[in-house]
Design a protein around this nucleic acid. Structure first.
Lengths: 209, 209
DNA sequence: TAGATTGTTAATCGATTAACAATC
DNA sequence: TAGATTGTTAATCGATTAACAATC
C-alpha cells in the first residue's frame, strides 16, 4: 500500500470506468474482479491491485457494488467535479475535440477556444466561438480555467504554451509532436499519436515474421 | 543486446525523429546524445540505449550523423515504406484524422474511408469520398490495406472491428473507449484519450497539494 | 460448511539508472 | 595527448505476477 500514484494503474482506470458504467446501465448491481478481468482481457490480480488505489473495497463472494466502484474511480480521478479548460488551435484535431461530447463524463468542460488565424476567429465550431489569441489572458482571468488543450501546429506549440503558462494554467494537454518547455510547477501531458502508431507499426511488423 | 523490442523505447522514437528532422532542416550534420537529451529533457543514457535498438551507431567525440539516424529510426519503425490503411467512422475524430497531413511522414496512407450513416456516405471529407460499410470487404481485397483505423462510436466498435478482421486486416488502431475482441493474430493498438486525461488529472491534483 | 472472492505480502520480471571501459 | 562521447555491463528501481491468508 502507501503508494498513492502509479501511472499504468491510472491509465487503466478509465477503461474500468467505461465498462462499469455499461454494467450499471444494464442494471447490474455488483461485480467481481474476476468478471471485469474476463471482459477486459486482463489478469484479475491487476484489477484488484488497481482498485485498491482508488480506496474502493469489496466483499468476498459478492464482489464490488458497481455504483460504489464508479464513484470511487471518479473521485480518485477528480472527475466528479467539473474542470474548466480552454483550447488553443482550432484546426483538425482542435475542432474534433471541441465537438467531442464525451468530455462531460470526464468532468472536463472546454469554456473557450482560441486560434491565431484571422480567418478562423469569429467562426463557430461545434457551438464554440473562436476567439483571437490576444483575448486569452483576459479570458483565463475571468473564467479561471485550470487546463489548456494545445492543438496548434508544431511550429506554434512553444509560443502558445508560453501564453498558457503566463495566463496561469496548471496543466497542458499537448497534442503536438513538440516537447514543450514549461516551468516545473506546470504539468504537461503529451498525447502522442505518433507514439501509438510507432507501437502499432512495430507490433504488426513483428507479427508478420 | 538481443532485445529487439521494448515498448517505452518504441514510443520515444518518434519524438527523436521529430527533433532530428528539424535539425536536418537547419543543416546540422551530426548530433550527440548529450545534445538530444538536453533538448528533449531526458537522460542521455536513455537515448543511447534507445538508439542502440534501431541499429544506428555513432562515433565517439562527434556523435551521430543526423541523416543516418533519421534513416535508422524510420527503418526500424517501418516508416520508409508506405502502409495503406482504411478508416471506419467519419465522425469528429475520424474526419480530423482524414485531414491530418502528418501521416505521410509516418508512412501511413489512408486509402478509403467508410461510415454507416447514409447521410455521410457520398460526401467528401478532406478529399476522401465516404463509402458505405458494405463496400468494405470488396475494397480491402482490391486495395490490400494492412491497417484499420477505428473511429466509430463506442457501441458500434466491436461490430466494425469484426468487419475489419473478416476483411483480413493485420492491425487495428482503436480510437474508441472499447476494448475490442479480435483473434490473437490481429494486433490492436488502443489510442486512449481518457487515459491521457486521467493521467493529467491526477498529476495536476497531486501538484496542488 | 464449502468455496468463491478479496486483499496483502513475497517473488519475479523488465525498464531505468549508474558505472565504466572503449574509442576517436 | 586529453577529453568528450559512445556503448556495454552491472545495480537499482518499480510494476507485474504469484502465493496465500482472510472473509463472507
Amino acid at each position: 500500500m502507501a503508494k498513492v500514484s502509479n501511472v499504468p494503474t491510472i491509465r487503466r482506470l478509465p477503461g474500468y470506468l467505461h465498462l462499469l458504467k455499461e454494467l450499471k446501465e444494464e442494471g447490474q448491481e455488483t461485480v467481481s474482479t474476476t468478471f471485469l478481468a474476463s471482459e477486459m482481457q486482463i489478469d484479475p490480480i491487476v484489477i484488484r491491485k488497481d482498485l485498491t488505489m482508488t480506496g474502493a473495497s469489496g466483499k468476498p463472494r459478492t464482489g464490488f457494488v458497481v455504483a460504489d466502484l464508479v464513484e470511487a474511480i471518479e473521485n480518485f480521478l477528480g472527475w466528479r467535479t467539473t474542470t474548466d479548460a480552454f483550447l488553443v488551435g482550432a484546426g483538425n484535431i482542435g475542432s474534433a475535440l471541441l465537438g467531442y461530447s464525451g468530455f462531460a463524463s470526464y468532468g472536463l468542460r472546454i469554456v473557450d477556444a482560441f486560434d491565431a488565424s484571422p480567418a478562423k476567429v469569429g467562426t463557430i465550431v461545434h457551438g464554440h466561438l473562436i476567439l483571437p489569441m490576444d483575448k486569452l489572458p483576459d479570458r483565463v482571468a475571468t473564467v479561471k480555467a485550470r487546463l489548456g488543450i494545445l492543438t496548434v501546429p508544431a511550429d506554434a506549440a512553444q509560443e502558445a504554451a508560453d501564453l498558457m503558462v503566463a495566463a496561469g494554467i496548471l496543466g497542458i494537454w499537448n497534442f503536438t509532436p513538440v516537447k514543450i518547455k514549461v516551468p516545473s510547477d506546470v504539468v504537461t501531458q503529451k498525447e502522442d499519436l505518433a507514439s501509438g502508431l510507432a507501437e502499432l507499426s512495430v507490433r504488426v511488423k513483428l507479427r508478420e515474421l
